[in-house]
Design a protein around this nucleic acid. Sequence first.
DNA 1: ATTAGCGACTATATCGTTATAGAAACTCCT
DNA 2: AGGAGTTTCTATAACGATATAGTCGCTAAT
Lengths: 384, 384
Amino acid sequence: MSDDMHDPLRDPGPVIAGDTGCESSGDGVPAGSVQRPTIRDIARAAGVSVSTVSHVLNEYGDISAETEHRVRQVMEQLNYYPSALARRLVAKRSYVLQLLLFAVEGLHHPFFYEVTCGITAEVEKAGYELVLSVKDTRDRRWRETLKRCYEAKVEGIMLMGTLPSAKVLAEVRASGIPAVMIDIPFEGPRVTYVTSDNIAGARRAAEHLISLGHRNIVYVDGYDLPDEHTPLPTISVARRIGYEEALRAHGIEFDPSLVCIGNYTQEGARSAVRAKLESRPDVTAVFAISDVMAFGAMKAVRDLGRRVPSDVAVMGFDDIEAASYVRPALTTIKQQGELMGRSAVCELLRIITNPKRSPKATVLPAELVVRESCGASRLSPRFA
Amino acid sequence: MSDDMHDPLRDPGPVIAGDTGCESSGDGVPAGSVQRPTIRDIARAAGVSVSTVSHVLNEYGDISAETEHRVRQVMEQLNYYPSALARRLVAKRSYVLQLLLFAVEGLHHPFFYEVTCGITAEVEKAGYELVLSVKDTRDRRWRETLKRCYEAKVEGIMLMGTLPSAKVLAEVRASGIPAVMIDIPFEGPRVTYVTSDNIAGARRAAEHLISLGHRNIVYVDGYDLPDEHTPLPTISVARRIGYEEALRAHGIEFDPSLVCIGNYTQEGARSAVRAKLESRPDVTAVFAISDVMAFGAMKAVRDLGRRVPSDVAVMGFDDIEAASYVRPALTTIKQQGELMGRSAVCELLRIITNPKRSPKATVLPAELVVRESCGASRLSPRFA
DNA sequence: ATTAGCGACTATATCGTTATAGAAACTCCT
DNA sequence: AGGAGTTTCTATAACGATATAGTCGCTAAT
């Protein structure tokens, strides 16, 4: 065990319990920061001009081996790192992509995390930086965040989650900054989106339930926008279409009273589903448009002393890790989160680099993953 | 439904399945980017000097109401946003904090996501930007990422996850950049850490099991460093200490053969625990140092046709969301992820702003959350 | 001998801001 | 009338890099 760790490990210092007690204004001086050498210092120390150093740095190839070696040596000695800030200023490029995630309350939607991982991987590979911003959907100050993007000359924006308003989309499009929306079908001259095939996914989900003999299927929707009137192109809308298509295709009439709102949270879904199950004893299946809400639905079923899947089948959407942990394991629609993130970045880079080409939307397959929570057919085996 | 969405929603365009087909080098021109107006354009249009515009921008208070109004109007009209790049260059500050996350393979550790959310919230509040970088632990090119931090003149670094080498810590400390390690007890002149009280947490976990009558408790450790010899101050080490302390306090001798490695993954833990249970039929409890591995342990128990908790009790560590979804619900040690992230940022900002003050480590409480996976006492009720 | 071409290097303007130090016009005081 | 002090505005040099357009020798071709 190293010297460094033993002490702090055994003598943990003050234990903080509640608040962070942090009210720093951010205006403080960055004092104490060591003055790093500049290109001028290198030039002086190596006895050459700044131009020469710059040429070495950028591998112009017109510097003699001897001089180059000397310059590199000095750089090493003085621990020199060229300032990205200055470089970006003259290049008129920021090399920054912004990921803006909107989420409610706990923000605990594991799917976003998967997407984010895909994004970082691809951003890094391309030599860009990713600035991450997580905002509460109910926070009205999203304009400030966009303002930051303009000031920072962000080269591309990715939007994900439950937007606070359709105005966000409009403003991003109007800004002219290349953007890729994640799971939000919205387009513009330099804007496009990456999404799972939500319609087909939801259709498959509903069809699976129908094929197992279910007719009265509760649909657990996500988030109800507070007081917004502009319709937002959400996954919620798309999945609803797929659900209704499947019903129609099988001659089942859509019953609006079977729809309830789970707010994308476990507890929200739990109480909504419980209420629905109590008022509609004829319901035999629940389709929640997120796995987390499906977990809530499973709890609701149990709250009423009924069993999953024998009494009520439960279907999710996302296929987050936890879907395979729960018991019964959740039957759900798999979204390829990581791939979605990667695709978003790739398309964004294409829009940035090639302004002629009109941006292309990407739709990733959403496939059924059968586990246990929907059980087997309630029809005769011949039908299943 | 808006015009924008109907089309793309119904006609999803090309469906991409596998690879992203993205090999962009990042060197492309950012072509087509609209030339945004500069402070000079504003000055010219308003008929004043750049200095005047700058003074308006920074609220010097020495500009007449009339002039100020005119300048602001022009800014509005021309859609002017001051370049953060240029500002930062003269201010010699980047206003950037870097979060560097190291993780293995899937990267799917929900706990990191909670911490990240806490971090973004606090970073935003302080008027900084957060650059996120996720690297695979096995990726040897971590120096490049640090080099980026130097070049970008990042003001503070946060490190989280399973580091690839103790050298990362040494280098960060040597760099002089303020840093806060998350769940890695490591200190330096401008470096400190935020951690859960891992020793106490693990002690509580083990004590809970012991109090329920368990004597032979398998300890599922996390990641085994590949070929590294410098000891790394990890949560793994700390939790092990707590586990052994509890044993000692209750007169149970520590048995090294009860330790196995789960690599922080579900499947890793599953096979490791299964093997251990097969060779040691006397084992009645498993303590995994992460919830995800505890899920794997639960599966292992079932693989062998045994039951949780009646045959084998399972204890986790983290209290991720899924811990309450699984059945039996997981008894575990709660880490306050979000608070941890917030605390890290706050301390980091303090180090940045106040170089005199020596950095202080923060230890957050880690409490036992009793659910179902450890069941009740196997001793007489009087002892439980 | 002149000129063209090449290799190795450099002076200087520039990127878009802020900081520093002043200038011009005006009021106020003696 | 002459300075001191305000108020309002401005010229210019930074910040740390790159881009552009040279310069200065030297060799090779005419």
